[in-house]
Design a protein around this nucleic acid. Sequence first.
DNA 1: AATGAATGAGCCTTCATTCAT
DNA 2: AATGAATGAAGGCTCATTCAT
Lengths: 213, 213, 213, 213
Amino acid sequence: MVYQQTFKVAQKLAKKEKSIRWAALKLFDEKGYECSSIKEITRLAGVAAGTFYLYFRNKEQLFTSLIDEFYQQMIEDMRCRRKTMEADAQKKLSFSMQYFLKLFSEHRKLARLVLLQSRQDKVHRLVAAIHDELTGFIREDLEEAMDQGLIPAQDCRLTAQAIAGSYNQVILNWLSSEVTSPVEEVTGSLLSFALRGAGFKILEEKSEEGCRF
Amino acid sequence: MVYQQTFKVAQKLAKKEKSIRWAALKLFDEKGYECSSIKEITRLAGVAAGTFYLYFRNKEQLFTSLIDEFYQQMIEDMRCRRKTMEADAQKKLSFSMQYFLKLFSEHRKLARLVLLQSRQDKVHRLVAAIHDELTGFIREDLEEAMDQGLIPAQDCRLTAQAIAGSYNQVILNWLSSEVTSPVEEVTGSLLSFALRGAGFKILEEKSEEGCRF
Amino acid sequence: MVYQQTFKVAQKLAKKEKSIRWAALKLFDEKGYECSSIKEITRLAGVAAGTFYLYFRNKEQLFTSLIDEFYQQMIEDMRCRRKTMEADAQKKLSFSMQYFLKLFSEHRKLARLVLLQSRQDKVHRLVAAIHDELTGFIREDLEEAMDQGLIPAQDCRLTAQAIAGSYNQVILNWLSSEVTSPVEEVTGSLLSFALRGAGFKILEEKSEEGCRF
Amino acid sequence: MVYQQTFKVAQKLAKKEKSIRWAALKLFDEKGYECSSIKEITRLAGVAAGTFYLYFRNKEQLFTSLIDEFYQQMIEDMRCRRKTMEADAQKKLSFSMQYFLKLFSEHRKLARLVLLQSRQDKVHRLVAAIHDELTGFIREDLEEAMDQGLIPAQDCRLTAQAIAGSYNQVILNWLSSEVTSPVEEVTGSLLSFALRGAGFKILEEKSEEGCRF
DNA sequence: AATGAATGAGCCTTCATTCAT
DNA sequence: AATGAATGAAGGCTCATTCAT
């Protein structure tokens, strides 16, 4: 009788891969990419060292896959929503940043992984690309706003970097703090900061409202 | 005569240590802490591997020392100047940030080292402490400004983080870009962004002026 | 009906084993015993890795079996023909060597496997035994010829080795060369060499004729 | 004080490298290239595993170096002697083969290494090149002899292969036999075989004489 | 009978650190 | 003070073999 991959088996496999991903994420988060060994990852995952290579080509590909799983999809989703959104630049910007914040808060480890990972590891290019992509969204909105006269003339690329930087920093601190205060506490203030910084004339009470999604 | 010799020796020693620091900085910057080996560092420095351990306890301490050399001194200097400065909060904040920017632009490699280094390596605590310190300065000024009613009520800790984050990000991009445009190009816009973000009512033309030091 | 099925199954089994043998032979030939993995063999054979162990005890036994399949039978056949042959020593020797040559040329891969395989692998003893056996045939004929005064007094064991060695070398080169010239081109000259070397007084024109089988 | 590599130290190093070479040679000889691990080699040599890499780039280079040490020099020497030799083809051939035999008998392990090594390992090309070189010498002499009418018309390339093959085989058997009978016992008969096989008209008593070197 | 996921010992290699010189 | 040879633990990865399905 031929070997038939039953549903149950497939599920077990998926579970095993998940557990490796989980272990890797935990260790990468705690000790960094370079300092986490395959052996340690697999031990934590409860599988043999060799098993790792049934699911991943090598350590680097595991990292890539970990990042991709989350980001690729997030960026895709973001791009899609933004396209179909009928709103002015400020609303779009607000939306993007809050969406961003929300996702990060739901995937703390993964988020930290991207925000913290040494940008010198072999593994950096991928992370850099993601940062660029996200900064690109912000920049687009800023340029639209500038064209419409909503904000003063400025170097939108630079402002976008500044906004992205402020977000990264604040989120990172929030993610890293032991006390997990609700992300909403942070959202409003941070958004105000960014919008004001860019030069939007915001009415304080509106900033809060406009950000539902 | 004796003194003379001692001085010469001391100089030679200092030179050797310097060359190791220089080599380490170059390699850490290019390949990251984990991926730079002692052997490579000493080869680049033109000394034997064993010599390394005459000047540094181990690899970690070299890193620490590298960071300290620059930051400890910078923070000290900054704290001192701020103390003796008679100025309002906005001016102090402006000063701090531009001082910060200037120093970074004069020590590109060292700056990149701090901004880029994986915050997960064994080596992180130190870097984190420095970030906190610098953010602390910003926060102080913001709190003072808030007390004086120059900026609206806000979570100054958070705003300080946001400002620090935006600075880090922009500087990093600037440091990493091949074309080394003058830092002044960046200074003005970035400062405006930060001040506006914090809620200062700034007159655009003043922002440029007020920042000499 | 039952028989029919059994037969079919048996055939299928045989086919699967065959395909493993074939794949192993191909890979052993191309990359050597040590450098061919079971996984690769089974992949090439189109079966699962585990299936291998239904047909062979382990990798070593596969090799053994591969060699045996060909040689055992060849030696048996040779021994048998030589027994029933009525001919003088020179004829017998000629026959043996040409038979040998012909078989090799018809089983290139298998031949290369025996001639090339490291004689240091775990697997060597078997191959060595075969070489000895074949050399033994040559020696028998030489001793008979010496007894009959057809060749001068000599160390027949040594001459037999020399002849076997020259055959192996030439065949190997011929097997390994890309251009597959007909083996007959080689046969005549090689045989002349061996016979002359042993001290037979051969008439050149006869050497060619006397070798049909 | 600068580290000064004294003569004593240099000697110790040379001894250490020697011991690694010796251990490798022994193990390669006993178990083959693929089956000998660096760990085992270094253990046998009495050094730590890492020490290996101070002397050799990797396992392959060790093998290469082992072979080269002996062969490169031998071939060079042979080529040189042959050039300055004033003798007919038969004498030159005799000389070459006996020189060959003598060297092999003085470097048993090294000789076995070349003669036995799997010709499929990554390491094969080098060994193959050596075989070709040596066969080349024989062929040159045969062609010269053929031109001078000393031997009948024939495919000299093939005859050279046959002669080389017979030598390899006989030497190998002799090297591998436990009882180490003097090589001279073998020399005469083997040479006679080869010369007769090539078609030289030899007077038995002369063959022995002509081979001093 | 057949599968292929799982294992873990073992491979080659690197590297921070020590120590005799 | 300076050297660089020596160490050996640890790294990523492969592979023959086993076993639940």
